[in-house]
């Protein structure tokens, strides 16, 4: 069964096309990367997959469930990080995690350990960007999801944390979690992804196994 299916997905904002005719399929237990420069529609695609946006035309399915028609069912067992990490500022990192863990009936302590979170007692408003992103990834991992939808999970992170997050994603993939992530960095695709979709100005320019794609000809933020 495909973890993600997009069929002719188009999204326009006030008649401005942001994504045009995206068709792709992501198999289970794989790491799939979407590569493209800023403004290429990567985050919009992720927002569509998580039901935050409705497609102008076309359909998106997560494990055979139409996201637009039944978002709640489609997001069962799916961990998400979309856009900039956002948390409740007056709560500590751990309180935020527990807040969402209680909501999902998941164990927060487990992800605190696996994500190497050492700032659990710090209020979110005092966290650095890297720490917020780590916390967002930890939140996405709550409840052992079978699919992770991650928007630029390793972008703008400190070098050490960047490598730690990459290792974490690889170990999640080994546990048969499907990972779908976006990036504007070619190295992330080379390091992590088995399959990739290349987006440029909202249009897919290439899609397939990373080994078969001519990534060196791409002009993105390498």
């Amino acid at each position: 069964m495909a973890a993600i299916t997009c069929e002719s997905v188009t999204k326009t904002f006030k008649e401005t096309p942001v994504l045009h005719d995206i068709t792709m399929e992501v198999e289970e237990n794989t790491i799939f990367g979407v590569l493209g420069p800023d403004g290429s529609g990567k985050t919009t695609l992720l927002r569509l997959l998580t039901g935050l946006l409705k497609p102008t035309s076309g359909s998106l399915h997560l494990f055979d469930t139409d996201v637009s028609k039944d978002t709640v069912h489609a997001l069962q067992g799916v961990g998400c990080l979309v856009g900039e990490p956002a948390f409740y500022r007056n709560f500590t990192a751990e309180e935020n995690l527990h807040l969402f863990a209680d909501l999902l009936g998941a164990d927060a302590d487990e992800v605190v350990q696996s994500c190497g979170i050492t700032f659990q007692n710090t209020l979110v408003k005092y966290l650095t960007y890297t720490q917020k992103k780590q916390l967002a990834i930890a939140t996405a991992l709550l409840g052992n999801p079978r699919l992770l939808l991650l928007d630029e999970p390793v972008s703008n992170l400190d070098a050490a944390v960047r490598s730690q997050v990459k290792n974490l994603l690889q170990s999640e993939a080994e546990k048969e979690t499907t990972i779908f992530f976006t990036t504007s960095n070619l190295h992330d695709i080379k390091d992590l992804a088995a399959h990739a979709l290349i987006l440029k100005e909202g249009e897919p320019t290439a899609c397939g196994p990373v080994k078969t794609l001519d990534l060196n000809t791409l002009e993105v933020n390498t």
Partner: peptide, 14 residues
């Protein structure tokens, strides 16, 4: 305004 609604709505919640 803070975007926390996005964090909440990407959970399986009606």
């Amino acid at each position: 305004s803070t975007g926390t609604i996005r964090t909440l709505m990407t959970k399986p919640v009606k």
